[in-house]
Design a protein around this nucleic acid. Structure first.
Lengths: 350, 350
DNA sequence: TTGTACGCGTTATCAA
DNA sequence: TTGATAACGCGTACAA
């Protein structure tokens, strides 16, 4: 078991100084061809690699990006990570992942763990609890300490930083437009409670679409599910609520749901009540994950291009990291990128 | 924008030596209560946190675990990560993620990037390409350099390291047993090509079950899909192949599939041909992901307890990391943990 | 009770 | 052409 070899060991072994070795390995013209050859050969033999940690300490850069997300077992978030990792790796960065598990405390702790030297900057999506409590001091402090943050999807408006978001409003409006132009008259909405920003925005998009077509929203067609129901244990409760929605509104001829699960559940409920999708009820979801692709029938849905969001976020962060060294402070002027949504038409609509 | 504060700055500010500050902050009895108070107050005011990188360099430990997986947009792998992260965090470790994207080269590059100081040990699942090429030198070298590896799921037998696997053989045998005891006579198998270890094992489990009941396998009931078909683009090809399987074998009354997607596709094909699940055809899959839970009908499946696998892997690795410092070499004796599978019965079987 | 010096592995600067 | 030294930030053995 040969431990990793260091400059010092090479130097001792070849009876030269450490700095000679360092220079030789970086092909410095200062060093004679002879010794350079010798040293490089030796280094190659022992598979020398400079120690990242030492480099980080010296350069005050870790070439590592910290990602904090509420949940990793989730198509959207894992796809964002893939996008981040793709760009990061291409530019020589690594990616370190912290999960907040939707908890404010874990979000704070995780950020503290990483902020103290381990990473150069954050890419994050806020936990549900943080959004509820509206306590954003940890973001402010991190930024104050000179560590850049890029927020995506669940962003906090009052925090000054780069952001990558999806146009939830527009995305859901387009979806509902589609249903309306398909002739649907009684379009139900399955959404989350309002404190979930994206749920609120998508609800607004639904309302906007109705209004644009001169249709007035009916309160009993709108089901606001408690977000906790996303957790697997509460699936049955969710299903009951959705079935109830159908039962108490037999005229429903379309459903717009703010996520895949709600949409699939709606299709299930419809089928259970003897309705056919898309003939009796048309359904559109939000988020283009595995469920949408493999549901029966396959689900028409609004894609957020999660991977692209990740790529953009990584590009924003890295650009800021690599530039901030040059100018001192005056860079700033944060951007908010809006990634377009796309309506992916499948078999749950006509 | 106040940069992160260091011991040195505190020392200069309070006009004491660096070591005094260091000691005071660690509540050393060497330092007078007075100065300790003063220093701690100052440190708190400026929110001092020791720099992780410096600590890593000093301690030759990063308290970070490297994870290399073929793909993150995948229920199984993301759930394993969740398990790893859970245990790691609890023990003060961070988790850094590298994706091989099923490529041998990316696996090697990623491991090299991380192995040079960034992490203390690896938890990984081999890429498909690596398994095909059977080139495992990067694993051997990593281990030789004293960096422990824990492999999970897609493990390499000839590499000496800790492993966490699922009993694929037993898991699939139990599934097929179930189908047989439900009265099925013509059980089809949808599996991968043999070089995918888990596919091979699950196939073997299927064969074992048949044999145990004195049934002889029929070649035309076994569909070996090219693994690349898992990628989204080839979904249609997969669907065609599965439909063909049904058409050319009208007697099929059950399907065992080695993953969720194949199982769901089988249900879809059956329905397309006018067959009802589970009345005409019973279906069991492998892997308990979102698809299984939300398919119609919900899918009976073999759960691998992915999160537990992650937890176990993290425990194995951390235990080895924390012990290796004490004894010198003689620890070794690697373990292979087998995580039990569980047949989760839902509506696709009777 | 406080301070000095060293080492972790590198690189950059300056001296030989 | 080579080597010694300092510095990145920290903790600690030892000296004052």
């Amino acid at each position: 078991m040969k431990r990793k070899i260091t400059l010092k060991q090479i130097a001792r072994e070849l009876d030269v100084s450490i700095s000679t070795v360092s220079k030789a390995l970086r092909n410095s013209i200062e060093i004679s061809e002879d010794t350079t050859q010798k040293i490089q050969a030796f280094a190659k033999l022992y598979n020398y690699r400079p120690n990242n940690i030492a480099l980080s300490l010296k350069n005050r850069k870790t070439k590592t990006i910290g990602i904090i997300i509420p949940e990793i077992v989730h198509y959207f978030f894992s796809k964002v990570i893939r996008g981040i990792e793709l760009v990061a790796n291409k530019k020589g960065y690594n990616v370190i992942v912290g999960l907040s598990n939707e908890s404010f405390d874990k979000e704070v702790i995780n950020m503290e763990m990483l902020a103290t030297g381990s990473i150069d900057g954050f890419i994050l999506s806020t936990s549900r609890e943080t959004l509820q409590q509206q306590d954003y001091h940890h973001f402010k402090e991190t930024i104050n300490q000179g560590m850049p943050i890029v927020m995506f999807d669940r962003v906090v408006n009052e925090i000054n930083c780069d952001k990558v978001i999806v146009d939830d409003l527009k995305g859901s409006k387009i979806a509902v437009d589609k249903l309306i132009s398909n002739g649907c008259k009684n379009i139900a909405l399955i959404t989350t409670k309002d404190y979930v920003t994206v749920g609120r925005l998508r609800t607004q998009g639904y309302l906007n679409a109705l209004e644009a077509f001169g249709m007035s929203p009916k309160a009993n067609l709108i089901l606001k599910v408690d977000d906790d129901l996303l957790s697997e244990d509460h699936l049955e409760v969710l299903e009951e609520e959705v079935e109830l929605l159908f039962k108490s509104n037999p005229k429903i001829d379309a459903v717009f749901a703010v996520n895949e699960l709600y949409a699939v559940t709606a299709m299930k409920a419809a089928r259970a009540l003897g309705l056919t999708v898309p003939d009796d009820v048309q359904v559109i979801g939000f988020s283009d994950g595995v469920l949408s692709k493999h549901a029966t029938p396959t689900l028409t849905t609004v894609s957020q291009h999660a991977q692209i969001m990740g790529e953009k976020a990584a590009e924003l962060l890295i650009e800021r990291l690599e530039n901030e060294s040059e100018d001192e402070d005056e860079v700033e002027h944060y951007q908010t990128l809006i990634v377009d949504t796309e309506l992916i038409e499948r078999d749950s609509t006509k």
